[in-house]
Computed example of a mutant assay.
Amino acid sequence: MVEAGPFLPEAARRYPHDYALVDVETTGLNPDQDRIIQIAIAHVGSHGVLQRTWSTLVNPGCEPGPVHIHGLTAQHLAEAPPYVSVADDLGRLLDGRVLVAHNATFDWRFLAAEALRANHELPVSRRLCTIALTRHLDLPV
């Protein structure tokens, strides 16, 4: 959690948004054929204060893909809900917030593909990619 420093009130005035920090784990790299197996979201307000966290495993209805990368086996996912069962909660968690992710296009494309398959709206109108931001700011990371 970030403590309020002298720059945060000014940043909050300039960028008065609430944020949903998102990470997804998937069965592969292609959102048209691969599936989400885990979703994690942290809500952060414009002042940088962590408001809440939420995460869920998701049963993809198929093999989990590269277990050596994400560590989630078919046994881990067997009792998890399918995406359609978490779509409403996910929509409420994203609605009205800027989606922030490391490689935001990747996460957003998977969320959008799952929402389309579930015939569910994905209420994301703004995204912020931490990879692009790091490059833009020329941060040495």
Rank of each mutant, 00 (worst) to 15 (best):
L21V: 15
D138A: 14
A74G: 15
H120L: 02
P64Y: 01
H102D: 03
G91Y: 12
V67K: 05
A42H: 13
L122P: 07
G65T: 05
A12Y: 00
L128A: 09
R14H: 13
D18F: 07
D34G: 04
F110K: 03
E114T: 04
V84H: 09
A42Y: 11
R117D: 04
V98G: 03
D34S: 04
V141Q: 12
L77N: 02
E79S: 15
A101N: 02
I36R: 00
P6R: 14
T56N: 08
R135N: 11
F110W: 05
A132P: 02
L133Y: 02
L122V: 13
E79A: 15
R126I: 12
L57Q: 04
T130E: 02
A80I: 12
L77E: 04
N59V: 03
L94T: 07
A115Q: 15
T134N: 14
L57M: 08
L111Y: 03
F7G: 12
I37Q: 00
G5S: 15
N119M: 11
A42N: 12
L21F: 15
T56Q: 06
T105H: 04
A74F: 11
V24G: 06
P81E: 05
Y83Q: 01
S46W: 03
E121W: 12
V22K: 02
D89K: 14
V86E: 04
A80D: 10
G48S: 12
V49E: 09
R117T: 03
H136D: 09
V49H: 06
G96A: 07
F106Y: 10
A104W: 00
D107T: 07
C62M: 08
T105G: 05
D89Y: 10
A87V: 07
D23Q: 07
I39C: 12
P123C: 08
D107E: 09
Q75T: 11
A80Y: 10
L77C: 06
I131Q: 11
V141T: 12
Q33L: 10
L77I: 11
V2Y: 11
L93E: 09
C62W: 00
L77W: 02
A12D: 00
H136Q: 13
D34E: 07
D88S: 08
I36L: 07
L90N: 01
L99N: 00
T134W: 10
V100T: 00
S125E: 15
L29I: 13
A80P: 07
Y19Q: 02
H43L: 05
R97C: 04
A11H: 03
L111F: 05
H17F: 13
A118Q: 04
G91T: 13
V2F: 11
D138R: 14
